[in-house]
Design a protein around this nucleic acid. Structure first.
Lengths: 335, 335
DNA sequence: CATCTTTTTGCAATCGGTTGTATTTTCCGT
DNA sequence: ACGGAAAATACAACCGATTGCAAAAAGATG
């Protein structure tokens, strides 16, 4: 910038104002400076700018994936979420910085937020986050969490209506005559618990208590789910449907029951959760709950930018809808 | 930091040295300052630090996905790449900043690199990058590109051996007796062209010219590929195998031929490229070329960090290997 | 105890922009 | 041509750390 100042013969303060299109600068001068900047390929130094402006035009996203977490980043859900948030942030001229904690104890929130590397933070999943978010103090006002709606949350939540999602699945499965439903997932996670509860609530409404779902615990790891479903098939408990806590688990479940010679959906109907891109590309197509990840990302970014600007922002639900495909009805999906 | 200085009664320069564990600071003093920093939850201001040190401990990744590009970020390949790079960067205490260009003309390279937001840049895919990378001048020394090995490249390339990958597929398909092979993909992209060329080279070695592959142009968009394959099935050209330029295309192809009542692999063998996580989870399992994305990400990060340190770094190939699954052999995949 | 080293700490410049305020220039009307 | 308002520009402080160099404190030696 001092280079531009010398070239154009004005003070760097004028150069700064010109580059920021300030009305304080004369049109001709502005033009000259902009031309020179272009010719010399000048780019404003973001480091100095963000120090002075106390803002880095960068959002952070924290994904709770670390060695041993049984979540892995290859889950398309996370990846699609990163993509959605990134695109939404770009619309507002924010960049996105990713943080994968090295370990559960690392306080990424602190590293990114308090250091000023990011102006605000999006956290995917609320498991075990409550306390550490409190440790942020004022900075917690610049955090948005993706997760299931729970009352105790002291932070801004965005997420799909997990309970309603569970209900939609329960209704659909009973509609097509399935009553021996297995639930595949880890109900220790608040989001998963809500999905399970939704399913249960429908079954309870519908009738006899003995049709309560069979709980098959599994982390979000597809390989673990695959094994669990194989075991389920080997066991003596009959079932005619599986509601999996994520699409990855559902796809693993389809694979597993097919490996055991069972047909989907004729013998076992399978429903997932998330509606990842692959859900419609597999055979049979996967019936699932659409969380509208793209919209979710956008809502989170908007909410976060509002919070950074000091506004109060409440929790928001993304539209939750059931997408019916071949894994629950018909023998062959039509595109 | 000035707060810590007052609390501990020393100059901020001493505080700075203490926090950076400088040997110039007395052990007791260091201890005191570290304790105070902990108690007050102090975090070094990354903005000031990076301005002064002329380094932001941040890498950038540019994904050539923009409206109208027919690539979309939901392609698990990109997303897995983001994950791999992010994890590799974290190992070296670098953060990762994502940039999705708004439009083809936007020079993200400039925005991130020259502005100092990132110390180095990883670019996924070299299509049309050559000129714009040149416009970076010296900063081009801090760029690593993922792509096919081409001679003209004036930048550091990392990627799988696409030609060899194509050959492996060609050998495998001819091994299982398939000779009427369709190639699904856009050969205008350098990486795809190399895969195609590899396939062709095998077919030419093996025999008669009439077994050259049938070229089915398609972008990396799964829906387009799906339509193209449906058309192929409707047409009069016989084929007994499809080599798709990516796993997403291959999965779409499986779905499409199955929708037409054809069996995979009995009627049509299908091979993909990338070995994304879903490749083994679908039915039938997808035979594909493993690019080892995780390793690729690590290699790129290592190379980039070396380049940032001023070292010269040459091109590197990731190990390229064929993963055989049910989409080409056997009727039912065993896990 | 004086002197010389070695440790330890403080001072002040610096990174490259932004912005409040003072100053100069330009533009008006009379 | 002159005074005053408006427009344009310059000056200088500031953001919060790092770091070369000077100064002070502590330790060693004779």
């Amino acid at each position: 910038m001092s280079g531009l100042a010398k070239l154009s013969g004005v003070d760097i303060s004028t150069v700064s104002r010109a580059l920021n299109d300030s009305p304080l600068v004369n049109g001709k001068t502005k033009e000259l400076i902009l031309r020179l900047a272009n010719e010399t390929g000048y780019a404003i130094n973001a480091r100095a700018r963000s120090l002075r402006k106390q803002s880095s035009q960068t959002l952070g996203i924290v994904i709770p994936v670390y060695p041993g977490s049984h979540q892995n980043l290859s889950d398309p859900f996370f990846l699609e979420m990163i993509g959605a948030v990134s695109q939404a942030a770009a619309k507002h001229d924010y960049d996105l910085i990713i943080n994968l904690p090295h370990s559960p104890s690392e306080i990424a929130e602190q590293r990114l937020l308090l250091s000023g590397k990011a102006d605000g933070l999006i956290v995917i999943g609320q498991a075990g986050r409550t306390e550490r978010l409190k440790s942020l103090g004022d900075a917690a006002d610049r955090v948005v969490v993706w997760g299931g709606m729970i009352d105790a949350a002291g932070y801004t939540l965005v997420g799909s209506d997990n309970f309603e999602g569970g209900r939609l699945v329960g209704q659909h499965l009973t509609d097509i005559g399935r009553h021996k439903i297995a639930f595949l997932g880890d109900v220790d996670l608040p989001e998963v618990k809500l999905r399970y509860d939704g399913l249960v609530s429908v079954l309870q409404e519908q009738g006899d208590g003995k049709s309560l779902p069979l709980l098959i615990p599994s982390s979000f790891d597809g390989h673990e789910a695959y094994r669990k479903v194989l075991e389920l098939c080997d066991g003596s408990t009959g079932f005619d449907a599986i509601f999996a806590a994520s699409d990855v688990l559902a796809i693993a479940a389809i694979h597993a029951v097919q490996a055991k010679g069972l047909r989907v959906p004729e013998d076992v109907a399978i429903v997932g959760y998330d509606n990842i891109g692959q859900a419609e590309m597999i055979s049979p197509g996967l019936t699932t709950i659409d969380q509208n990840i793209a919209l979710g990302g956008e809502i989170m970014v908007n909410a976060l930018i509002d919070k950074i600007a000091g506004k109060q922002v409440g929790a928001t639900l993304t539209p939750t809808k059931l997408v019916i495909r071949g894994s629950t009805v018909g023998a062959k999906p039509k595109p």
